[in-house]
Design a binder for these strands. Structure first.
Lengths: 350, 350
DNA sequence: TTGTAAGCGTTATCAC
DNA sequence: GTGATAACGCTTACAA
């Protein structure tokens, strides 16, 4: 007989993974009793419970979440879908959501839609197939119709954050887009700028669309007009921001100031200016919606509208946890406040 | 009768989630046949297959991954454990791994160890309980003993990346730490620096420990000595880097140059210098292991050792996929090359 | 080619 | 208090 017990012995634990039945057998009770003891359900004799616990410890028993999920029809897993995990904003939101979800006993399954509708649909399908208990999604801009086609069949609660699907889901957490952009435009106007351009993000997303609309509105409010070509529609990437800036600089009458709809876009603008020998903020002022954590270490330090990205994740997760636990709660829309952080890129003294 | 069919009819699909049995019933075949048709296994009559497919489509059937997993004992899910998802490096690595894993049909379940051993152990336990098929982990410094206590019971393949557990797992992907640090120290020496300090990261992690050792070795090689207090042991955070720098600057004879073990640490150094009125690179030169994607937009632009963080994730994922599919392959240690990127923070012309 | 039956590892509903 | 027994929704021998 080798060091390990004979594998044929009916009472010997298999090399891999003791099961509840094994524990029950060692403890000399039935599987149901073992289950109750382990989960603290029902009234058990103290001695029985102790025996089961001891057996479980001896066998290093780890209950299979898979089996449990199949039986209980709940996975304690939530799906998290974002356009780009590598973006500091989504990464921070993810981290915030994580913390809240874990605190409530949930695990997160992550999917990156790669900023495409197809990617997002595939992600949702996969997650639903996994029978996640809830969904946290920053949509790339699914139509309500498409969303319902994909997720309508299940009643899995879904909370949107950052970018929403109109009237869909159990709730949403958005940033204060309009006030944020207004702060930016007004500040630029105070500096005397009139030729203000915008690097807008994807208009398929509510975040992108709202910011662009807010920009137009704020310009109007300040008695300014948006010149032809001053609205650059970009993707949410550094490269796209760079290209957009190049186009702006190539205009016959280039802007004297730029509002970037996101940090990536601002970074692209910075890079383009550096490459083109454009001095910030003197030749061109730059302000940004979203204050990345290294915003004040850039050159020039970035004037931006800031907020706590992790809080966006936490708030969304909290909403989701509530609807996963309650079932039918009214739709709730949370909005995270923003504030203007003045630094040098707008022309303010360093 | 309402718009929806009566729910008591035995052949009517339930409101929520058609099951394989439902599909089989509608198609007029047995569950096993339906299963085969859907999975393309075995020889089926064309007509049968078509009937099943049609029924599945009609019912919008989505197989339960949970049930499938229980039966097949494989989840097609891999666990991903990092000290901090919000760090650009890990976020990028995650994204790289994601892409590779998804391509191979795997989903990822993410856990953040929060840079603590307890967090990491809890994460591993959870993941193992979920019966993930594989593990991708950047350890915070578990001892081989502890790791085996936690994961030894299962033979789930585990690939470490960035920071490793000695002789554990199925493989590893590390950065070229020693050459990288040497590049940095030598470059500083070429600039004439002799009083060089280091902001070292967690020494519990191989990445942190190796970089510190490499620093000492490189100093020796260049005939330089590390003055007392020139080694600051930090955590991998911006704040810690800032504090470490403050301590360095408070020394009776402060260094003229600093090697930061990570981007976070360098950012902290930058912040400390800015706050303390220390001019970079004139008063203090700074170089960094890890070139964040915004490295050249900082002030001053950061001289750093760069590499492709997503590639680290991809390589680790590739290794993992192989060992999940093959089972017993020899241990493989991949190392990702690095290169020196000269910018202004070291004293090079901008 | 297709169906029957067993089983994956739990939990829940009953009896006893 | 505790133990059978039946699901949960799927796959896979083994029969037919």
């Amino acid at each position: 007989m080798s060091l390990r017990e004979a594998r044929s012995g009916s009472s010997s634990p298999r090399k891999r993974g003791a099961t509840l039945a094994d524990v029950a057998e060692v403890a000399g009770v039935s599987a149901s009793t073992a289950s109750r003891a382990l989960n603290g359900r029902g009234e058990l004799a103290e001695a029985t419970r102790a025996a089961v616990l001891q057996a479980a410890a001896a066998l290093d028993f780890r209950p299979s979440a898979v089996a449990r999920s199949l039986r209980t029809r709940t996975t304690f897993t939530v799906g998290f879908v974002v356009p780009d995990v590598a973006s500091p904003f989504y990464a921070a939101a993810l981290k915030g959501a994580q913390a809240t979800l874990e605190g409530a006993g949930y695990r997160v399954m992550l999917m990156d839609s790669e900023q495409t509708e197809a990617g997002e649909v595939a992600a949702l399908r996969t997650l639903l197939d996994q029978r996640v208990d809830g969904l946290l999604v920053a949509t790339t801009g699914l139509s309500p119709k498409r969303f319902h086609e994909v997720a309508g069949g299940s009643d899995t609660p879904c909370v949107f954050f950052d970018s929403l699907v109109w009237r869909a889901g159990a709730g949403s957490v958005a940033l204060d887009n309009e006030p944020g952009i207004r702060l930016l435009v007004e500040h630029l106007a105070e500096h005397g700028h009139e030729r203000i351009a915008i690097l807008a993000g994807s208009l398929a997303e509510t975040s992108g669309a709202e910011r662009l609309r807010a920009f137009r509105k704020a310009m109007r409010r300040n008695g300014l007009r948006v010149a032809a070509g001053y609205e650059r529609h970009c993707r949410w990437t550094v490269d796209s921001g760079r290209a957009g800036t190049d186009e702006l600089l190539d205009l016959a009458t280039p802007p004297t100031a730029v509002v970037a709809s996101s940090a990536e876009l601002a970074l692209g603008c910075l890079a383009a200016c550096r490459a083109g020998g454009v001095a910030l903020p003197d030749d061109l002022a730059l302000v940004c919606f979203d204050d990345p954590y290294f915003g004040d270490l850039l050159e020039p330090p970035l004037t931006a509208v800031g907020y706590d990205p992790a809080e966006v994740g936490r708030a969304a997760a909290a909403l989701l946890v509530e609807s996963m636990q309650d079932g039918d709660r009214p739709y709730r829309a949370v909005t995270v406040p923003v504030e203007l952080v003045r630094r040098r890129s707008c022309g303010c003294p360093g």
